[in-house]
Every structure is written in C-alpha cells, then in structure tokens.
Design a protein around this nucleic acid. Structure first.
Lengths: 405, 405
DNA sequence: CTATTAGTTAGTTAATTTTATTAACTAAAA
DNA sequence: TTTTAGTTAATAAAATTAACTAACTAATAG
C-alpha cells in the first residue's frame, strides 16, 4: 500500500531550509547548520546526506577546530553548477539571452534584433537557446527553466502579456506559446519588475527587504519590493511612478490625461520627452552645433544629459527642470513607501555622475536620512540576470526540480 | 516559518488551519474541513475534538444530508465567546477603551479625558480596564491581550513610541510601562495603521489584500496593507502621504521643508491648514456671519467643509483647492500602490457626501477603473476595533493562548 | 620533549515519540 | 442498496533524544 508521509511538504521544506542555509553561509558544517536552524544533529545529517546524493551540495575539505579543541568540521559547499537557468531580456530593439549557473555566473550570452525576428520570436528564441546549450555543453535535463522580462504589462499568473506597445503585443499569450517549444517551466514578468529582482539578488539592493527601483528610459517606470516580495499591485499596475503628478497647475495646462499608458511625470522627465524638448529648443537656435542634427532627426534623452554635463546651456535648462520633477517624484514615492534604498537605472543613467548629485541635493531634505539613493550595479546584463532571478524566485526552490543524478 | 513535522509546531499549525477554516466557513462539518484543507478524515476528527475540548469551537445541531443520502453532518461553530480582547484608542483629546469578543462584538466601552490623565495614563488605563472586566464579568484568564493605537510613530518591535506630539511623548517605552500593570500580551502601533487593520477586519476593506487608508484629520496620514500585511516601512515611516508634493512650484514659494513632521500636502489640504486659511479669509470679510468667531478663535477644518457644503463662497474656494490637492495626492499614491480600495477617514469626512463626489470626479480619469474610493465604515469605534484587530493579527492565532478550560 | 589524559566539538547510530496516513469499520441518511 | 459522516486500528514517516564514535586541543606527569 502506498502511504503518504505525515506531512509531505514538511521534510522538503526543511531540506530547502538546509540548502538555503548552505547557500548563504557556505562554507558551513553540519553542526553549524543544526545550530542556526535549531534542528537536531541527526536531522541535519540526514538532510545533508540526501542533498549530497542529489548533487546540490559538496563536501570539500575540513575546517579548523576552535581554540578549545574538538573534531574538525567537514565543510559543505553549495554546488552552483548543479543546474542551469535561462534568462531572456526582451527589449524594444534587441533580445538578450543568457544561460547562467545557480549563482548567476553567465555561461553563455547572445543577442538578436527584436524587430527583425518579431514575427517568429519564440521560434528564434528556441533556436538560439538550444544552440547555446549545445555550444556550452549543457544538457537539457540540467536546465531548470527560464525567466523572461518583457517591456509591458504582464498578467503573471497566466503568463499573458496584456500590453507591450514596443513589441506590438496585445494580449499575447506568452506562456502558452512558449510551452509549444520548451519543456521546462517558464516565468514572465514586466522588465522593471525583473530588474529590481536582479538588483536584489546581485546588485545594489542585496539583503534589502524594501526596495524602490526607478527606470528612466523612454518613459519612467518602477519596481517595488516590499517585505522581500515583489509587489505587482492589485491589477499589475503598481509602481506606475510615471503617472505621478508633481505640479498640478502645470499639468492642467500642458497635459492631456486622455493619453493612455503615458503619465504626467514621464511627459516632463522621461527620456523621450526630454529629447523632444531639446530638439524643439535647438531648432530655434541656428548657431547651436547640433542645429542640423535637430532639424534632420530627433535628439535623445541620453544626448540631452551628455550635452548638459558638457555645459550646454539649452540642454542644462531642460535637463534641470526634468531632474527637479524627477526628484519630487522620488520624494513622493519614498514618502509613501519608505524603502531602504532607491535605485536608479535606465538609459539616461549613463550620465549618473551628472544626475545623482543633483537629484540628491533636492531630495535629501525631504527623506529620512536612512534612505540611500544609488545607481543600478548590474549594468549591461541587468535584464537577463533579473530574468534568471525571477525564475529562481518563482520556482521557489531549485529543490522542486526532479532529481537528475 | 519553521515547521518541524513530528514536533509541536506542525500539529499546532494544522490545528490553526482547522480553526481558521471553521471561523470563516461556519457552520461546517468535519468532512467538509477535510475536503477543503486536504487533510484525512481522522486528522480532522482529532484536531476538531481537541478544539472542542479547549472550548474554541462548539458542536451544535446537524445539517442536511445531500439528495443522494448519507449520514447528516455535525455542524461546527466557532465559539466567539471563548476569549476576550481589549482595544485601546489613545487620541489627543480622549482615550477609548473597549472589551470585545473574538468576533469584534463590543462587550463594554468607556472613554476618559486624555489631557486630564496624561501623567498617570497607564495607571488610569489599568484601573478602567479591570473595572470594566469586573462589570462585564470577564475573568482575567479569559482575556487574551490588548491592542493599542497611538497618534505617533511607534517602533512596533520594541513597543517604544518614538514621537507622539499630541501626547508630549518622546521615546516613551509604552510596552515596558504596560508590562508593569498588565500580565497579558500588549501590542502597540500607530493609530492609522491600527485603523486600516480595523477596516480590513470589519469595515470597507474586508477580503482586500491591498488597501490604502487615508486619514484626513489635523494632518494627513495613511496606512498601507500590501499582500494582506501591514506595511510599516523600512523605518516606520511608510504611508507619509502628508509629505507628498502635488505642486512643486507652489511648494517652493510657500512651504518651508525645515518643519519637522509636517509635510506639504498637509500644509495645503490638512484639517488644521484649511481651518487656518478659512479663519484668515473671514477675518478680512467684516460682513461674514462668522466674522466674530474668526476674530476670537480659530475655525476648524470640519467647519470649513460644513460651510462649503452650505454654499459659503469663501469656504468653497478654500475647500475646493484643498480637495484638488488631496485628489492629486490620492492619484499619486494609487498610481504607485495600485490598491484594490482607497478608504478615506478622519474628522473632515463628516462631510463625506460633499467631499467624495468631488474627489472622485478629479481622481477617476487617472486611476484604473477597478480602484474603488470609499468612506470608512467603522465610524466611532474604528479606533478600538482596529486596536483589537491589531492584537489578533500580531498574536497570530488565538491558539497561542494557554488553554484555559 | 614525549606520552598520557581530560575536556571539547563534529558527526553517527539506535531507540523512541509524534503526527498523519490508509483501510476498514460503524452510524445514519435517501 | 447506496451514499455520506465520522470513528477505530494499524502503520509509515519525520524528527527527536540519548548515547555513541571520531578527532581534535590543552594541560600535565614523567
């Protein structure tokens, strides 16, 4: 007769705790784990032995005994090569794909053009990924799954992308589509949410339970971690910091709220808006060195910040106005959320040296001194690493994987 | 939470689940519980029998069998009179104390003047509570504990009130003091946090996991529930909606941020500010019916809204400006937090019929249609009920109580 | 300086306790 | 007779305690 254990999840739960403990405190001994988790020594021994059997951890070497003597401890290490995870960062211009080990070390990285393969995106993704796996000699069985960041609103429970303007997706059933190609589990979320998870895993927000991540790109978006959990909002609309109103009178004059998916703050401080304003301004200045560029095409937010930091007066004025709005946006958001850190990221942050001090000067008097404002640390690979982090989070524990040894 | 299978915690955990199940779905049978919780029938029977023994639940009557026959189920009911909880709402003018059963039915209610007993507040509280217990014939053993709401910043882990201007408390060790008088556990928190818990328990936010509660009184404060958990912030400063900046230019002209514990939004839309503005305005209008009152003393925010709803032009102008700021404050907060409901409360909400439609008109175009804006439902007893809810939450489960039967 | 011994810590083994399960029952209805 | 509610008895699994072995330090006697 098959009998269910008296609490199926219970042992697995404790095993996960032991693994988590080894992962964070490695190298660590069985005795130390027992102390930290308040488990008995035999329990730890059994769980550790199973974890070793399953190849999630390794015994390697022995530590020093304390000054008072005693048997020397056996060092346990997490086996970061026990399995691999795939991270995908779908952007408006390019799609980045990475395979990493369980510690976020990137094994293989590729990118392809979004627009060129938009019609066959999932197929292209499939091809690239299996090519990468072959190239890196990673077997399909050792791939736990995949995390994906998408520039739009994602219904995470169903994996449907409700809206992603830059990809022309409306109600695109990402998960259903991906299941036609991939046998491993896949998780999708908004790109900013993915980014803040990445920052908390490997970047500026490590060990922080309450994080506000602001991305200033074309528009302005934010990702919120509260109580160590991603907060997506009641209808996937939390963190719409681009919708903040920092000057209601100016807003009533200049802004039409009928625009869907475009808020006031982005209309005055978003990269696109800054670029447009700069373009317009320079078109009226025949002597400006960029006059011709401005006539032929639009200038970008990035260029505006670059010019400003070089001392260009027109750019400086536009940029400082935008920064002031952004600063009050941060003040508003931080007043409500009281995070431990505010992390800034996005295209315009290339000029962080110019931006951060100016923001800080305005923001500082209004916030508790404990709130730090920092730049994103992950840089280029933030997107894919965040996607990998999303997978690891949602998957809850690598221990859910079928044993593969 | 650590669950070790064959030790105390695991069984207790399951027992709590069963009790919770009965509490929410009563009347309910053993068989139904087994189905809902995916427990075996014997397990449920054992846990239920223990709960009956311990007097937390009752067997009462038998239900109907299904149309296909079968033995009729024994109905189980939660015993809301199994224990009692004390709620205390400390306000600037009066302290309200209530004893309620486990369902929030108030058994006994009293109030006393805050200022008069401020020096001996804890002693006074002690006297009143034990008098109430005697009067209601409630034994000390059946009192689980006490929840307290305080108008100030509270370090909830230690129970120290960091700052409560209206009580002249600075770093007042509430919990340490209370332990000198009360043998049962006590939990303290900020009054707005307490209020939102109350609303979620018995008011407008029942069954909502993400709630924004805004109290417009002298100042403006808010309480935030996210993922069904109170969010206090990294340094107990979350929800400072009174600090929002809704008009940065006006702010730079009119407002000095050096003021501690007083924000821009309260300075333009708080009850005190509205009262002051109205007073000033009427002092310049010799013919106004309230001219003499305004000369001799300050008018209040409540009065301003009353006058405005009666059509007084001066009041109307002041109040509508304030409401506009408040509306943009709500827009900002809701854009970031994307709550399921926004609940408004506080002194000025006496004129809710006047206020709500006006707010809604401004706010609606900017928020997802799913976000409802409602008035607080608990009214007079919101404070004490919230405090009781705080206790029941923090205490996690009434099952932690020592058995008393 | 070496050998012995006492004390300390790491980890294992064996017996036991607790919990929840399955299988098989009784009870009571259509 | 069939169906559902609830109980009883036997059993499996997880984690415990107690007692062990293993391996070390440090003190001390010779």
């Amino acid at each position: 007769m098959i009998r269910k254990s008296p609490n199926e999840q219970s042992k697995l739960f404790n095993k996960k705790l032991v693994l988590q403990c080894i992962r964070t405190y490695q190298p660590i001994s069985r005795a130390e784990i027992a102390g930290k988790l308040n488990f008995s020594k035999p329990t730890v021994s059994i769980l550790v032995d199973e974890l070793v059997q399953e190849n999630w951890i390794h015994e390697r070497g022995i530590g020093e005994s304390s000054s008072q003597g005693g048997r020397r401890p056996i060092q346990l290490y997490f086996n970061e090569k026990a399995a691999y995870v795939i991270g995908v960062d779908i952007g408006g211009t390019k799609v980045k794909v990475a395979i990493s080990d369980l510690s976020g070390n990137i094994i293989c990285l590729r990118a392809f053009n979004t627009k060129k393969h938009l019609e066959q995106l999932m197929k292209m993704l499939y091809g690239e990924i299996f090519d990468m796996m072959e190239q890196s000699q990673i077997a399909e069985e050792s791939v736990l799954g995949m995390g994906v960041g998408v520039p739009g609103i994602v219904e995470t429970e169903t994996g449907v992308v409700l809206e992603a303007p830059s990809l022309n997706w409306i109600r695109y059933p990402f998960l259903t589509e991906s299941e036609r190609y991939f046998s491993f589990p896949v998780y999708v979320d908004n790109d900013v949410n993915v980014a803040v998870l990445g920052e908390q895993w490997l970047g500026s927000a490590q060990k922080k339970d309450n994080v506000l991540f602001i991305a200033v790109g074309t528009g302005i978006g934010s990702g919120i971690i509260i109580h160590n959990q991603l907060y997506r909002g009641a209808s996937y609309a939390a963190g719409e910091i681009g919708y903040l109103v920092t000057d209601k009178n100016d807003m009533k004059k200049e802004f039409k709220p009928i625009f869907h998916r475009y808020g006031y703050l982005e209309s005055v401080a978003g990269g696109k808006a800054i670029g447009e304003k700069l373009t317009m301004a320079i078109r009226e200045e025949r002597n400006h060195p960029l006059y011709n560029d401005a006539i032929t095409s639009e200038l970008t937010g990035k260029q505006a910040f670059l010019l400003a930091s070089e001392g260009d007066k027109i750019a400086l004025q536009i940029v400082e106005n935008a920064l002031e709005h952004l600063a009050y946006g941060i003040i508003n958001a931080a007043s409500l959320l009281n995070p431990e850190v505010v992390i800034l990221d996005g295209g315009v942050m290339k000029s962080a040296d110019f931006i951060l001090p100016r923001l800080q000067k305005i923001v500082q008097p209004y916030l508790p001194s404990s709130v730090g404002i920092h730049q994103s640390e992950l840089g280029e690979n933030a997107g894919v690493l965040g996607a990998i982090s999303l997978f690891l989070r949602e998957y809850d524990s690598i221990l859910n994987a079928p044993n593969f040894c």
